[in-house]
Design a protein around this nucleic acid. Structure first.
Lengths: 136, 136
DNA sequence: ACAGTTAACTTGCAAATTGCAAGTTAAAAT
DNA sequence: ATTTTAACTTGCAATTTGCAAGTTAACTGT
């Protein structure tokens, strides 16, 4: 029941009310580009998110209808997080951030993603959106 | 001389090291869509950014080469902030955020921007990029 | 020339958020 | 029956944010 306050009616401001921090989009990145889906997998990423922050952000993302939480197929004590359609529609934001980051900052892009981006931005967006939908 | 620490070599993470907060992209929004360019104009926006936060973010944006600061044409005590090419390349991120926000959240879009978006995402991006470049 | 105003910050401090380490709980594996 | 795995929760110090007030320099009007 995490509810956020809306600072204004501006769509950019309202988007940032949910996504505007250093961690939320990294969790979604892990889901979209690395196919991650569990709490433990998110903890393993290079940026080393703290456990309390991760739990907090997952709860917000779920309450905002961006991801769903379900018991995993193999274990009852394990949960699987997946993107909703609202979450799949964040893929364009992620791809746009990749393009800006690679153009202006010293970064290392995953070879697979780099190859996808050769085929153009829109093609890459569609590919990762389709991939995320298939995992539903 | 604000220097940020880079959490990883991932382009999304590195982009968020600079842009990942609730205020930075709102300042850029004001420059791109409202044509704002001064400290006083940024303070007037609906979200009511605090003066110290605004000064801090402007300094970071300048040190990161996203905006430039110059004495205004009319007054010596007034400064004009403008986008660099690195800043102009943030327009796609802003437009993508507008599209997601309008699709999934209760927001009100500026009529002018809405009209531009009718012509397609890419056309809107190009228009606002051109507009920002012209102000140089 | 002087007094008030405008513009851009800066400072101090309380409140909120983040980050780290350790602890808890339940289910699964050994 | 004991250990391990997975997902959190808790406590607390450190950092960041938000608010109000203060400062500085340049302009504006009289």
């Amino acid at each position: 029941m995490k509810e956020l306050k809306q600072r204004s009616t501006c769509p950019i401001s309202t988007s940032l009310d949910v996504l505007g921090d250093k961690w939320t989009l990294l969790i979604l990145r892990d889901m979209v580009f690395a196919g991650k889906s569990t709490y433990g997998q998110f903890l393993q990423s290079a940026e080393k998110i703290a456990t309390n922050i991760l739990a907090d952000r997952l709860a917000i993302l779920e309450s905002q209808g961006i991801i769903t939480k379900a018991v995993a197929a193999d274990k009852k004590s394990k949960f699987t997080y997946r993107l909703t359609e609202k979450g799949v529609d964040i893929v364009p934001i992620l791809v746009t951030l990749v393009l800006w980051g690679t153009k202006y900052c010293p970064t290392v892009v995953d070879p697979g993603l780099l190859e996808e981006l050769q085929g153009g931005k829109d093609a890459a967006i569609e590919k990762y959106q389709r991939l995320a939908r298939e995992k539903q």
